[in-house]
Design a protein around this nucleic acid. Structure first.
Length: 266
DNA sequence: AATACGTCCAACCGCCTCGCG
DNA sequence: GCGCGAGGCGGTTGGACGTAT
């Protein structure tokens, strides 16, 4: 993927915040000529920035159609649900939140939603502890499983480490490492003992133990076994269909139309 | 009013993948 | 097949701003 106009000149690239003048130059250039090869953009637009910086500025700030301002409740719920499904796949999430950038979603998650999720989880824990009501454990499980995996060593749980929210270790130990977001009840879990997924780091990247990743890893592992299929990963047909229903809810709401098979290959 | 501390967000960095030569 | 550059992505950082003391 090489450009005709290579950025061979080793200019001293400016860093830091963009000035309104720089924004205007970049906007004018891209509106008139398109970005084409990003490394050529700063040269042609008369900017002392590198191509990457221009691309980022355009995508995250200047691009038409971006929503600015607070996230709506629906957007937040979508992010939380998608995070439960996808893990830190911000760019994938942004595809289902029109007008929002991956950076924006990521920032919002780290600054707000992560804490909100942790807090709601903690409240549930308090209810269990205070009342000793075992029935509430189901809603607790739903709440917690909505967004998190439970292997205390995995990266998803590290999100708790940088907040003051603590999940009691006894709770963690009782929990499966993965549940299927909020569509798997505790009862379903107990009815499907084989569902506790394996944790661990995969392929050297920051890989989180989300149901999505687990499905993907199962998918990868089934490449060598053609007798397996996606549906078998769900333990039974009911679970497969309830998962499909949940995905339908999310993606139809966002104007999409997708099935589990599609989802796996997004 | 001054300072410390916390939060948020724009931007940077490093890594990975892809495609061209 | 290999090397290189571009593009893309997620993690991290730094500074601006708001709030508490």
């Amino acid at each position: 993927m090489r450009c005709n106009t290579l950025e061979k000149t080793k200019l001293k690239h400016k860093k830091g915040l963009w000035s309104p003048d720089e924004d205007q130059k970049l906007r004018d250039y891209i509106v008139n000529y398109g970005h084409g090869c990003w490394s050529a953009v700063p040269i042609n637009a008369g900017l002392e920035r590198n191509g990457k910086s221009c691309r980022l500025r355009w995508i995250n700030y200047l691009r038409p159609g971006l929503k600015r301002g607070a996230f709506s409740m629906q957007e937040e719920e979508t992010i939380i649900t998608l995070h439960g499904l996808l893990g830190n796949k911000w760019s994938l999430m942004s595809q289902h939140l029109p007008g929002r950038t991956d950076n924006e979603i990521k920032n919002h998650w780290h600054s707000y939603l992560k804490k909100r999720v942790a807090k709601s989880g903690n409240l549930e824990v308090q209810n269990i502890t205070n009342t000793g009501n075992t029935e509430s454990s189901s809603s607790y499980m739903n709440s917690m499983s909505r967004n998190l995996s439970f292997d205390s060593s995995d990266s998803a749980n590290r999100s708790y480490a940088d907040t003051d929210q603590q999940i009691p270790q006894t709770q963690i130990n009782k929990l499966p490492k993965i549940l299927f977001a909020d569509w798997l009840s505790l009862e379903e879990f107990h009815g499907h003992n084989g569902l506790a997924f394996n944790g661990g780091v995969s392929n050297g990247s920051n890989y989180q133990d989300t149901p999505m990743n687990e499905l993907l890893s199962n998918e990868a592992s089934t490449d060598n076994n053609e007798n397996d299929n996606h549906q078998s990963n769900y333990q039974n047909e009911d679970m497969f269909h309830s998962t499909q229903m949940k995905i339908d809810q999310i993606f139809n709401f966002n104007g999409g139309d997708i099935n589990i098979e599609d989802f796996l290959y997004m």
